[in-house]
């Protein structure tokens, strides 16, 4: 890290979630809140979401090649594959509806469906395993 290159600075509170950075003659307003291990930062017109990486934390997309996980909360409205069925990369496998929009979840690679863990009407959340590929 290059923290030795940072100028000396102080931070002053300026209301809930709002701060002023004071570095020499420069003052700069920024916004920042913590939510568990996530830090939400708004700096010079851009929002950043910074995750503190914990030991043993599992990567977000572990199942990218082995199957499909729900990416957000929603309701399963179509299941287009069954165990044993061959699928090609890009095939629609599951359709989840959230915020009134259909989101098609597609096969990440060619393969054979091993398990289908949900049925039409199920509510799913982020990380719910929907389908496993062989």
């Amino acid at each position: 890290m290059t923290d030795e290159l940072l100028p000396p600075f102080t931070v002053e509170p300026a209301g809930p979630g709002t701060y002023v950075l004071v570095a020499g003659e420069e003052r700069r307003v920024f916004h920042c809140v913590r939510d568990g291990s996530t830090i939400h930062l708004f700096w010079e017109g851009v929002a950043y979401r910074i995750e503190e990486q914990r030991e043993g934390a599992r990567p977000a997309h572990r199942r990218d090649q082995d199957g499909l996980e729900a990416t957000m909360p929603g309701k399963v409205i179509a299941v287009k594959a069954s165990p044993g069925q061959a699928v090609s990369k890009g095939d629609e496998v599951i359709v989840v509806e959230a915020m009134k929009m259909e989101n098609a979840l597609r096969a990440p690679r060619d393969g054979t469906i091993k398990t289908v863990a949900v049925k039409v009407g199920d509510m799913v959340g982020p990380g719910t395993v929907l389908v496993e590929l062989e």
Partner: peptide, 14 residues
Amino acid sequence: DPPPLARAAAQAAL
């Protein structure tokens, strides 16, 4: 990436 100064400022703020 947030600039290093931004990260440091966020850390100090929190």
